[in-house]
């Protein structure tokens, strides 16, 4: 009997985790104005959100969000989240939006409302420099161990463009690179922005390079809000203004993203 009760209790506790919470339709715009702050879910990664030498949070998304919040008349509050549970964070209202180089995917559209995309995101294939010649074409990756972050845009790119590869999902993009470095996988598919920040001279991944001739589908970064949030429209309006007055372009140039910025 007690077990039965306990099973029921556990089930009751768990259902909402998967089912989400229907019917809490209070307006996000009013909500953040009342709170005086916009709680922004991020993970730490360059060039979007990261700390400079002095411990100050900088990055393209950081400054972009600060500019938008200034227009909204609220303070931005950046909260580090676990990327695996970002949808739960959003639904639980622990955060108001995800603004962290979030790639727009069909799957994600079921769980969140996206702003207009602001950056063209490219997925790239990374291999050890010694293997660069071996893995220079899409076909050369068929039957080869390839990794990407579970549920990431890289994963979608592999499904679409590299269906023949031996794909394994790992916990994060950083782990994907670690796999290649450690030789447990041959290639990793991750965001171009992240790839450039993580590899090259001065990093532990200086011997990992982008296989430039393998071209995967392009995707776009946008801000993720709760479904039905009034913030989507408002933030889009503000973004238009920031594009017009050149603010956003200046920020993009600062972080070497100018040619990826979606300006129209």
């Amino acid at each position: 009997m007690k077990k039965l009760i306990s099973i029921l209790l556990v089930a009751l506790l768990l259902i909402p985790l998967f089912a989400g919470c229907a019917g809490s339709e209070d307006d996000d715009l009013q909500r953040i104005k009342k709170n005086g702050k916009l709680v922004i879910g991020i993970t730490e990664y360059a060039p979007m959100n990261y700390y400079d030498e002095g411990g100050k949070l900088i990055g393209f998304d950081t400054e972009y969000a600060e500019a938008v919040c200034a227009k909204l008349g609220v303070k931005p509050e950046f909260v580090v989240i676990n990327w695996d549970t970002k949808e739960v964070e959003l639904k639980a209202k622990n955060i108001d939006c995800i603004w962290n180089g979030l790639t727009v995917t069909e799957e994600r559209k079921e769980n969140m409302a996206f702003s207009s995309p602001y950056i063209v995101n490219e997925q790239v294939v990374l291999v050890r420099s010694a293997d660069l010649e071996k893995y220079s074409k899409k076909e050369s990756l068929s039957g080869v161990a390839v990794v990407a972050e579970a549920g990431s845009a890289g994963e979608s790119a592999i499904e679409a463009d590299l269906p023949e590869a031996e794909y394994t999902a790992v916990a994060s993009q950083a782990n994907a690179l670690l796999e290649v470095k450690a030789g447990t996988s041959e290639a990793a598919v991750i965001d171009a922005t992240m790839a450039f920040a993580m590899t090259g001279p001065g990093t532990d991944y200086s011997d990992i390079v982008v296989s430039k001739d393998i071209d995967l589908m392009d995707e776009e970064y946008a801000i993720g809000f709760r479904l039905g949030s009034a913030l989507v429209k408002k933030v889009d309006e503000i973004t238009q203004g920031l594009l017009k007055d050149g603010t956003l372009k200046a920020i993009a140039e600062k972080y070497d993203l100018a040619d990826r910025l979606i300006s129209g």
Binding site: L13, P16, L17, G20, C21, V88, K91, A92, K93
Partner: peptide, 16 residues
């Protein structure tokens, strides 16, 4: 951990 952290918001609409 996840139940304690996300539960209040998801189930009762409370602040975490």
């Amino acid at each position: 951990l996840m139940i304690v952290y996300y539960g209040p918001g998801l189930m009762f609409g409370l602040t975490a």
